[in-house]
Design a protein around this nucleic acid. Structure first.
Lengths: 150, 150
DNA sequence: GTAATTGCAAATTCTTTGCACGGTC
DNA sequence: GACCGTGCAAAGAATTTGCAATTAC
């Protein structure tokens, strides 16, 4: 689904949940869409939104991100650096994607493969735990940093 | 390895890394060992340590936990609730264990199975990423909460 | 003895909240 | 005109830091 389609869909979701479609919320959504590959913190979202709409407040960004998290439009994730980051959920993706965190350069790459199908089946049967979602991050050395060492 | 064995081993590690073996560090370690199954936050560790050694300061606990994280004695993890939690690494475990987070009661269960061997091989070959460790948490409904619904 | 470590308090950082004002249906 | 949403500033929570006093080795 393209950015415009996603935008329309989320607007509909907001409306159906009884929220208003304010310019601030739209600007925040646009920033999230334009930086889909990144994992922006609230401060970073604020920074980008402010370039479009300088009058916006940080608290509004936090409040918007909270709403979007509740509506499952974004996922709130944390990579142990003390800030919450917000990650747009992929349209149609059954599960949350995975991350590759490089221990040297700190870069975070997203991978889309659904790698956990079998593993979830094991967890469900062995622990009688109904899996709804997961968070999987690999820590290691990215290909760029490997190349630097050669 | 039993608690005492672990304690001795960590003391040795501290010593080899040039740190002093203070009573505060020992008390903090003991608390971590006694609550191995929990995922204590720094505040919680502080609370327990204070019962043994009331004169300890919260900053010391933070500093000790940082050292233990650097020495890879504990893992710092975050379950998106805004606090860092500290999880003792299992002796001899090749990889960090996994977690089952119940969305209803909030309980966190640890599972020891090494479920990711194949998945890591896929990641390494497909993305040329050298995997050093991982974080995997399943979100879902634990068996207790399932029973409540019946 | 002395350099590392501590406790305390102050400072920082991230996030949430209270509130008066503004915009919308 | 009720009400939702906003910006701002203040509050709150988690963590870090500066420093003088203390302690381990």
């Amino acid at each position: 689904m393209n950015a415009n389609g996603t935008l329309l869909k989320v607007k509909k979701q907001l409306h159906e949940a009884g929220f208003k479609l304010t310019p601030q919320r739209e600007a925040t959504l646009l920033v999230l869409l334009e930086n889909e590959k990144d994992h922006l913190s609230a401060e970073e979202v604020f920074f980008f939104v402010k370039r479009k709409s300088p009058e916006i407040g940080l608290a509004t960004v936090y409040r918007t991100l909270e709403i979007l998290t509740d509506l499952r439009v974004v996922d709130k994730v944390s990579f142990n650096d003390g800030v919450a980051r917000y990650d747009l959920r992929k349209e149609g993706a059954k599960h949350f994607h995975h991350h590759l965190l490089c221990l040297e350069c700190g870069n975070i790459e997203e991978i889309e493969d659904d790698l956990l199908g079998e593993v979830e089946a094991v967890v469900e049967s062995r622990y009688h735990f109904i899996v709804k979602d997961h968070r999987l991050t690999f820590h290691g050395i990215c290909s760029n940093c490997q190349a630097k060492h050669e």
